[in-house]
Design a protein around this nucleic acid. Sequence first.
DNA 1: GTATGTGAAGGTGTTCACAGCC
DNA 2: GGCTGTGAACACCTTCACATAC
Lengths: 246, 246
Amino acid sequence: MSPARRPRAKSRAQRNGKAPRKGALKAARPIAREQITERTAERSLVISIPRLFLYHRGLEDALRAGDKVLTSQELAARIGRGMSSTQIRKDLSYLGSFGRRGQGYDVTVLVKKLGRVLGLDRDWRIAIVGFGNLGHALGTFLELREEKFHIAAIFDSDPQLVGSTWHGVTIRDETELEAVLPELGCGIGIIAVPASVAQRVAERLVRAGVGALLNFAPVNLSVDAGVAVRTIDLASELSLLTHHLS
Amino acid sequence: MSPARRPRAKSRAQRNGKAPRKGALKAARPIAREQITERTAERSLVISIPRLFLYHRGLEDALRAGDKVLTSQELAARIGRGMSSTQIRKDLSYLGSFGRRGQGYDVTVLVKKLGRVLGLDRDWRIAIVGFGNLGHALGTFLELREEKFHIAAIFDSDPQLVGSTWHGVTIRDETELEAVLPELGCGIGIIAVPASVAQRVAERLVRAGVGALLNFAPVNLSVDAGVAVRTIDLASELSLLTHHLS
DNA sequence: GTATGTGAAGGTGTTCACAGCC
DNA sequence: GGCTGTGAACACCTTCACATAC
């Protein structure tokens, strides 16, 4: 370590003579007593997955625009809103070294790498439960716009709907869920049913082998640890916006 | 300060003789050089709005279940997933002292307080741009399920739709947006148009006086600071789930 | 020169531990 | 006894500053 290398304040470790703390990695933390909830299980550690999606989208845009090489600054500018080039470099460095110093990042290489990390290089089969207005709209949207996602099963409790087909998929009665779903190999379930039955539907989907749920009912689903849940609550989203307005 | 009050490690301030740091509040930070982006502007400071919505929903559930008083632990259990009672108490303490020590929180008082903070005690008028499958589903959902939100204007570019009415609202041509919208007093705009035109629609909504946007197009909208934007990107949500599965 | 990659510093949000009160 | 409210401790994530590489 050469002299004149640390013009900022002295490091905390130097000041108090303690060894750097990062090594321990929360080894012996006392287990929380007041809650049975398992301790998150998800280790996001510095790099955040949602941010990687932003990068991926930005890079895809750049690719469409014809860029072959992109610097972290250019990517940050493309993404906009508060993304710093440093943050991008830091995140990407956790996936390995893909850039060339002095040049930037090869767009195709990086898109491919991110795609693999994010699981975008595979196709996914989806089951929709609840094929009313919302379920129908979601299905249409995905079927038309997203090549990676295929609607492989549809369930509803409305006798008027059950039996008809939609884009080649037969709409089945909700009671058949456990019987039919396992052999269809759907990893993802979309819950577009009223709030009152959402929890029950979630449990049944999980029992049928679905490992991830996208929930549009305004309830906090509780499912086994190991099952991923994302809830999109339109009312909450709107309320967030109103909060900003007042 | 009595003796025997600090069994944990000595405070950083004590160890290195520095005064507590929290006072300064990032006063003279050098302005970022490499980006023109304005410095977030949003101060969330410890308490997070989305979390308050969780509390609000949990309390409403409790109210429906007949609870009059709730402890922070009970609320945490009701919300589930990684909410700690400490976190709840800390957040609520920023809004004032509403609990009774030894007892808990009065549910009705707290619901009302949170509702006021979150802007849930008012009605809101919404404009929907793009009335295809998704726009239609969103409109129906809100009209039927959410009393606080009223669809007050609908725009589409499809001549087949323009002119017809839906729940008493006439569907207008998108070109009329600037002419019609200002006098309808819509604070919120929902963007349910294809990604390719979303940015343009956003700009026009903002010019027509809309202060908050809920965007379903998979693009990062860039709008004036001061306009709130929430983007719900179904593809990204699904991709997040797939990441969990692989 | 330019841009990446990365330890260390710096802030921010969460958790702890306990005083205060019922 | 129980539960709230809160300063301080802590862990996490972001930003800085600079060595390294092109």
